[in-house]
Design a protein around this nucleic acid. Structure first.
Lengths: 224, 224
DNA sequence: GATATAACCATCTAGTTAGTGAATTGTCGA
DNA sequence: TCGACAATTCACTAACTAGATGGTTATATC
C-alpha cells in the first residue's frame, strides 16, 4: 500500500475514518437530496431529512448549497447532465440508421426505468416553470450534441432510403421521449384507471415493443 | 318572481346576498384548491392560501373536506371526472373511423391546452403514487367507457380496411395522450434545452400536426 | 316562533420549518 | 510549529403550518 504521498484520502477512505473529505460530503448531500426531492417534490421535501439521510449536518447543506432552492437546482442540473452523459456513450454514428433508432428508443426506455427519480425531478422542475434549470449554462451545450446526433441518423436514413424525408428531429426526439416517459410517470394513475399492472415485466415488454413499432412506422417511407 | 315555495335559494342567489349557500361555498373552495394544488403541488400548497383565494374561512375547508389530503383527493377526483365528461361529449360512434381518431387527437391536445392544471395535478398525484385516486370508485367506471369507445373506432376502421389489425386500444390511448401531454408538461425544461419557444402559436400548431401524423401512421395498414 | 341543525367566522396552538450564530476541530502551507 | 482558513458541529430562532376551538348567525321544521 502506502507510497505515502497520496494526498486525497480516497484510497484509504473506508469505514471509521473521521477524516475530512469535502468533496465526498458534498456528493453525499447531493445524492440524499436527489432521493428526497424525487420522492416529495420541491415543496414537500424537508431539508432536515436530507441532512439525516446524508448523515451530514444541516449546516453543511447551507454551507455547500446556500438554500433549499439552490440545492434543488444542483440536483436538477445534475440529473440532466447525467442523462446526457449516458446518451453520449451511445455512439450511434457508426450504426446503421434503423438499428440506431431502435437503440435510441430502447436506451431512452431503459434509462427511465433505471432512473425513475429523473422523471419526477423533471416533473417537479416543470411544475416550477423551469426556473432552476434556466440558471444552468452547461446543460444547454451538452444537449445540442444530442439533437445533432439524431439529426445525423435521420439524414443517413433518408439518404439510404430507409426513412422518409422531412421528419423534424426535435419533434421526433420529443416523441421518442414522450411515449416512454408518459407511460412510466403516470403509471400509478393509469394502473388505477385501466385496472392493469403497468409495471409487470410483460407489460413493460409490451410497451417497449409498441413504442418501437410506433417510432419505426413514423419513419417508414410512404409506400407508392 | 315569488311563487313562494321555492326551497333552494339558487334561483335568486346573485350578487350581494350574504345568504348561505353551502353548495357554492364548497365549489368555491374546490376551485381555489385546484388552482393552489396545480401551482404548488401537494407539498407546496398552503391551506391558508386556499382559504384566502376562495374567500372562505379555513374552518369551512376542514368542515367540507376534513384535511388537506382529502381536499387534494377531491380536487384530483374532480379533475379526472371533468376530462371524462368532456370526452363523453365527443360522441364519435357516428363519425367515420379516420375522422374520429383525428378528432380524438385534436380533442386531447386542446383539452390539455385549455386545462393546464389537469397536467400538473396528474403529475402530483403520480408523485404520490396514486394513493388519493385509488380511493375513488367513480373514476374507474367512467373511464372504461372511453376505452370501449376507442376500441369501437379501431374495430370499425379495421373492418373497413382503413386501419391495420391488432392495435391495442389501451396502448393506443396511452400513446395519444403521451405525445401531447409530454410536450406540454415539460414545455419549460424543453424550451430551455432546445432553445425554442414551445408555446408560440405556430409551434403548437406544428406539434399538433406532427402528432396527428404520428397517430395516423401508427394505424395505417401495412402496404403489400 | 321556538328549537335544532348546519353554515360560517376570528383566533389560537402545538409542532415544524428553513435558515443562522458562534464555537470547535482538522488540514495545509509557510 | 504555527497560523489561517475551511470543514464540521450543535444549539437556536423567527416564521410558518395544519388543524382545533368556541362561539355566532342563518335556515328549516315543527
Amino acid at each position: 500500500m502506502s507510497l505515502g504521498a497520496e494526498p486525497t484520502g480516497e484510497a484509504t477512505g473506508k469505514g471509521l475514518s473521521k477524516k475530512r473529505d469535502p468533496e465526498r460530503t458534498r456528493k453525499r448531500i447531493l445524492k440524499a437530496a436527489k432521493v428526497e426531492f424525487a420522492k416529495y417534490g420541491l415543496g414537500g421535501a424537508r431539508v432536515d431529512r436530507v441532512a439525516a439521510r446524508s448523515k451530514a449536518n444541516k449546516r453543511m447543506i447551507y454551507h455547500y448549497f446556500g438554500s433549499k432552492e439552490q440545492l434543488f437546482q444542483a440536483v436538477v442540473e445534475e440529473a440532466y447532465l447525467s442523462i446526457r452523459v449516458a446518451e453520449q456513450k451511445l455512439n450511434l454514428d457508426e450504426v446503421e440508421p434503423e438499428e440506431a433508432i431502435r437503440q435510441l428508443v430502447v436506451f431512452t426506455w431503459r434509462y427511465y426505468l433505471k432512473h425513475p427519480e429523473f422523471l419526477t425531478l423533471v416533473n417537479s422542475e416543470n411544475l416550477h416553470r423551469g426556473r432552476h434549470l434556466k440558471k444552468s449554462a452547461r446543460v444547454k451545450e451538452v444537449h445540442s450534441d444530442y439533437v445533432e446526433m439524431v439529426r445525423g441518423i435521420l439524414k443517413r436514413g433518408e439518404r439510404s432510403g430507409v426513412f422518409r424525408r422531412g421528419v423534424d428531429p426535435i419533434q421526433f426526439n420529443i416523441t421518442v421521449a414522450a411515449i416512454g416517459y408518459y407511460y412510466l410517470t403516470n403509471r400509478f394513475t393509469s394502473s388505477i384507471i385501466y385496472d392493469l399492472d403497468m409495471v409487470a415485466a410483460d407489460a413493460l415488454d409490451r410497451r417497449l415493443a409498441f413504442n418501437l413499432d410506433t417510432i419505426m412506422r413514423l419513419l417508414k417511407p410512404d409506400s407508392r
